[in-house]
């Protein structure tokens, strides 16, 4: 159900932009209005979500500790996996965000006859995820070429490294291939692994198809249906300098690509894609395991009903006296 529905949705979006921009020629709508609206929703949506999270307190210090604690001086602590300082936490988050540390631990359990449990090497999800995210980031950074003048040297550098393979005179960006492969893999495993298929929602397939369509339209545009790059840059520079212009002669494939970006922008803040920001706020990863050394305050800590020693002694005084246990009040 999820796959069909998501595919239909992507087809509908494709038809909309094809007719709107290609047949009806609504270039202003698809080239300026929708991108501006999408960017606004993206920006304010993310801020709204992060502020909403940020306003909720962290009542307790609940890091998941994945290594030795800092205790006795002669026992070597695991500074990253069980951080006791801010530096350790930064290290832990950096490893998590940049290298997907936790996902790297992944194994696959198998139950054999006996019963005998085996845990297999399983780094494909880690690898697929890592390739996808790094390719996406690289492609995103490469696209800064369209939004800057002059183009910063790091962008050219990334382009150079990414495009070291050549097909004729043209650079073949390795990340273009990797992102298509990685997203296809992420989709494939979602369908093929029964447990993952069972938990998958339309909200899981849709973003995969959307990103796949986005990447595919980009690849088509770059390698197959060439568009007028200088006209594209005129449009994109117009957008970022708030002097929007619609140059003539940009093919419909560009509007398709831009529309998918816009849809992604709109979808982003209201979806699971917010994990991009959420990972930084995850209390099991961004707190130090030092609550025995440094007091952590819960802003809403309220008094509760307890059973006091006086009440306890009141009930058991006779038995305590008989057993020779010291009392606060000898009689009563």
């Amino acid at each position: 159900m999820g796959i069909g529905f998501s595919l239909l949705l992507i087809m509908a979006l494709l038809l909309a932009v094809f007719f709107g921009a290609g047949v009806l020629g609504w270039h202003l709508l698809f080239g300026v209005v929708i991108p501006y609206a999408a960017a606004t929703i993206f920006l304010f949506g993310i801020i709204y979500r992060v502020v909403k999270w940020g306003r909720a307190p962290i009542p307790f210090r609940i890091p998941t500790t994945c290594g030795q604690q800092k205790s006795l001086p002669w026992i070597k602590p695991s500074r990253i996996d069980n951080p006791s300082s801010a530096a350790g936490v930064i290290g832990r988050l950096a490893l998590e965000v940049l290298l997907f540390r936790s996902l790297f631990r992944n194994t696959k359990a198998e139950l054999r006859d006996g019963p005998r449990l085996a845990y297999h090497w399983e780094k494909w999800l880690w690898l697929g995820g890592l390739l996808f995210h790094w390719s996406f980031l690289t492609i995103f950074l490469r696209h800064l070429r369209f939004f800057t003048e002059p183009v910063p040297s790091f962008v050219s550098f990334i382009e150079g490294v990414d495009g070291f393979l050549r097909v004729g005179v043209q650079a073949l960006y390795i990340t273009d291939i990797l992102i298509l492969v990685a997203v296809t893999y992420l989709f494939w495993r979602r369908v093929v692994i029964p447990q993952v298929r069972y938990i998958s929602l339309p909200a899981d397939y849709f973003p995969l198809f959307l990103i796949l369509s986005l990447a595919f339209s980009g690849v088509l545009m770059r390698y197959f249906f060439r568009v007028d790059v200088s006209a594209v840059k005129e449009l994109t520079m117009g957008l970022v300098t708030f002097h929007p212009r619609i140059p003539e002669g940009i093919g419909v494939i560009f509007y398709i690509h831009l529309f998918f970006v816009s849809v992604l922008f709109v979808y982003f803040p209201y979806s699971k894609m917010m994990h991009l920001a959420g990972i930084f706020l995850s209390p099991t990863r961004n707190l130090a395991n030092n609550s025995r050394a440094c007091r952590h305050i819960n802003p809403w800590n309220y008094p509760v009903k307890v059973h006091t020693y006086e009440e306890y002694e009141e009930e058991f005084r006779g038995k305590m006296r008989e057993a020779g246990i010291p009392l606060e009040k000898e009689c009563g």
Binding site: R49, W53, S102, L103, N106, L125, G129, I193, Q195, V196, I199, S200, L201, D204, K272, M274, H275, G278, I279, S282
Partner: peptide, 8 residues
């Protein structure tokens, strides 16, 4: 909010 249902 942030689970992506990767199944790990």
């Amino acid at each position: 909010d942030i689970c992506v249902r990767c199944g790990a």
